[in-house]
Design a protein around this nucleic acid. Structure first.
Lengths: 249, 249
DNA sequence: GTTGTTGGTGAACACTGTTCAGAAACTCAA
DNA sequence: TTGAGTTTCTGAACAGTGTTCACCAACAAC
């Protein structure tokens, strides 16, 4: 019988490479590697070959565990929600709770490069994500909103989150020379560009140049969320809005 | 000397194909062809080679007029705004005006397949598009909103438009078998899926299944716009919201 | 008529996602 | 211990992608 834990004596030929030194592949490890590539190369550099190289493995090995590149992206998207716990709905604090939800969501989208691109390309209705959708609906229901508003409010907030972060990253991509480290110079340039426009044709752009770029992304995000929350809150206690005249007044 | 407008006599050999029969290439024609390919093949099928084939031209010919595929996409994006006239701002009717703006924007995004994908990937701050941004700002300023709200309200509304239409097209892509002609069957399937979920774990999803998919996209879009407009309107007459406490109450 | 410039060609390069025959490595029965 | 069967990985290939480059044909100007 073989003695598994004994060192191989030097005169014996190496044991024919049983037990390959690397851990076997798995969906988890593939997603890990894909995230590593994404952070390093960005969305456009995220190729199956790069992922395989990250794992020191042939490309075709990936296809044993993953049907498609699309499925891999789906798995990456799902992981975005891992450990993303929404609190128990509290009717007294639904606004603060949703503010936190949005903040948390943006932070997650920012935690991996180009993550917003992946998020925007997927609808959060896979079985794994339904619990989150359910929690979201519960929070809006607890707030006392009409059914039809509940049904679309979550979508509205999520769309805004994704779109906002996507736009953040688009701006970053337009200024690739700074390694993400000098956004101030970028802002200066944009602001001076807006300020230099002919004031007769672009009075508002010139006048608002400072506000449009001076404020931090954090502030602009929070204000956008606040606008949406105010709009949602205005429906509390109202009946379901009708199809014909969304604004009766 | 040659007589340019005379018909060629039959005994004379054809004039060596001077003046090639096809019109010369131009950016306009390339964008036209790209739109044709986009409508036929979708965003993933929109390749430089397909565009060249559409024009019966070698691929490399495109690169004389267009630096990049990226530049081509930018040109397509710009054309989305051609003839997109925003009305003179009217402080009395700013809500109706913005509703129309959003409706029109969505219709434009829907008028070409996968257009939302292209739109989402571009920021509307090229020189050609600045007049639209200016008009937008003018409308919000006329409504009497604080500066900081004006500065981000347009972004908010545009992001929602793009995101909404993008999600519409994502759902369509998940059901490619219907040629876009049978959305009712799709809705039925989704609704029956939601209804079949375990009600103890997904009470809201089960209860709201009808509202979430029964309502037309048109209605859901309008309601979303209305929520945003209500949120924006709530800031009329208020001072600029501060950085620390977006919700003072 | 001879130039130079422009707009077009076809071939090539370095990639991409995906598939497939075959070769390892593992599991389990005899 | 042997042998069969299954799973996992390999290397090569295919068709397609964006982009570039030497070459060529048509046009304008001197």
């Amino acid at each position: 019988m073989t003695q598994p834990d004994m060192p191989t004596p030097p005169w014996e030929r190496p044991p024919k490479r049983r037990r390959p030194p690397r851990a076997p592949l798995s969906r988890e490890r593939i997603v890990d590697a894909a995230y590593a590539v994404l952070d390093r190369e960005g969305y456009d550099g995220l190729s199956m070959r790069q992922v395989a190289a990250e794992l020191h493995v042939a490309v075709s090995a990936l296809y044993v565990h993953v049907r498609d590149k699309d499925e891999l992206l789906q798995l990456m998207y799902n992981r975005l929600f891992d450990g993303y716990e929404l609190p128990e709905p509290d009717p007294e604090q639904w606004r603060e709770q949703l503010r936190n939800f949005a903040r948390q969501g943006r932070q997650r989208l920012l935690s991996h490069r180009d993550m917003a691109k992946i998020s925007m390309a997927h609808v959060p209705f896979t079985p794994e994500l339904l619990p989150h959708v359910e929690r979201m609906l519960a929070m809006f229901t607890a707030a006392g909103l009409p059914r039809k508003v509940v049904a679309i409010a979550g979508d509205l907030l999520s769309t805004y989150m994704d779109g906002f972060v996507l736009e953040e990253s688009l701006w970053r991509d337009r200024y690739p020379e700074n390694g993400g480290a000098a956004p101030e110079k970028m802002r200066e340039e944009i602001q001076s560009y807006f300020s230099s426009l002919p004031p007769d044709r672009f009075p508002n752009l010139v006048e608002l140049a400072d506000v449009m770029v001076d404020e931090s992304n954090d502030y602009r995000f929070e204000l956008g969320v606040e606008i949406i929350l105010r709009g949602i809150a205005s429906y509390i206690g109202e009946p379901d809005p009708g199809n014909d005249q969304p604004e009766p007044g």
